[in-house]
């Protein structure tokens, strides 16, 4: 963590084959993906010692570790392309809430195990096809993270699917809780597939994948699981948005306060 946050001085370093505009856009895109993984890892890490059984403590920790392992090279790459001397820790611990570009779904708190699983289902069914498409990204770090991540996220999705089936088709209480969790989190799903000029321009250059393109696969996968589990697809009208522009739900400030407190309390220290 060598540099202070939000330094506005030197210009971003250009990639050889692309312009400064593309580099700046790539930084934003890497932060979106990296922040998704980091924030979800932070939520899951907090569940360790609180799982319904020991096997789940192990499983949730594994998923958190995989996501953290994805976040670190993505943030490091963002810092490198940005060219302002910020490393993964400066980006994780010294940015303000408005500078985090994760979707709002991943920051939603763990109300109960059904909520943890519903969040995992909605996210992993999105992340898997996204990473599959990113394995051929023109950015080699992104392609590398995607190549490794595909294998990991296939397990995350399987874990979420298996639990959704068990909770949906388990007891009356588990079915009620799982449905309530889906209803609660459904408004945050649409944001996963939001497309904008930034991502579309990067998609044209082969760096990014337009998230709208993975929506049909997500719909099919999620619908199939919900049908088998005897759960209803929520018919929520509210659509949450803003995460990709740094607008977050109220719970997020607390997550960052907890995550960043120690690092910020010792400016300039290394750990």
């Amino acid at each position: 963590m060598s540099a202070p946050a939000r330094v506005e001085s030197s210009a971003p370093v250009d990639q050889p084959a692309t312009g400064a505009g593309t580099t700046a856009a790539t930084v934003q895109y890497l932060l979106r993906l990296g922040d998704d993984a980091l924030v979800l890892a932070q939520r899951l890490g907090a569940q360790l010692t609180r799982a319904p059984q020991l096997e789940e403590d192990v499983a949730l920790a594994n998923i958190a570790l995989d996501l953290l392992g994805q976040a670190r090279p993505l943030l490091a790459r963002a810092g490198e392309l940005e060219g302002r001397g910020r490393d993964e820790d400066a980006l994780a611990f010294l940015r303000e809430e408005r500078d985090f570009l994760n979707c709002q779904l991943v920051e939603q708190p763990d109300v109960d195990f059904a909520g943890t699983i519903a969040r995992q289902l909605l996210f992993s069914c999105y992340q898997l096809p996204l990473l599959q498409a990113l394995t051929t990204s023109a950015d080699e770090v992104l392609a590398g993270v995607a190549g490794k991540g595909v294998k990991e996220v296939a397990y995350h999705r399987d874990h979420a699917v298996q639990w959704t089936l068990r909770l949906g088709d388990g007891t009356e209480e588990s079915s009620r809780r799982m449905q309530a969790a889906l209803d609660r989190l459904w408004p945050f799903a649409a944001e996963l597939f939001e497309s904008d000029d930034l991502v579309r321009s990067l998609a044209v250059r082969g760096v990014a994948v337009d998230p709208a393109s993975v929506r049909p696969r997500w719909d099919a996968d999620v619908d199939a699981v919900l049908a088998e589990a005897g759960l209803a697809r929520p018919s929520s009208v509210r659509v949450a948005t803003g995460g990709r522009r740094g607008l977050h739900t109220e719970c997020f400030g607390y997550l960052l306060a907890e995550m960043q407190h120690l690092a910020r309390s010792h400016p300039g220290a290394t750990w």
Partner: peptide, 12 residues
């Protein structure tokens, strides 16, 4: 707090 989850897995 995990009892209902274990019961659901058993019931399933």
């Amino acid at each position: 707090e995990g009892a209902w989850v274990r019961e659901a897995a058993d019931a399933y």
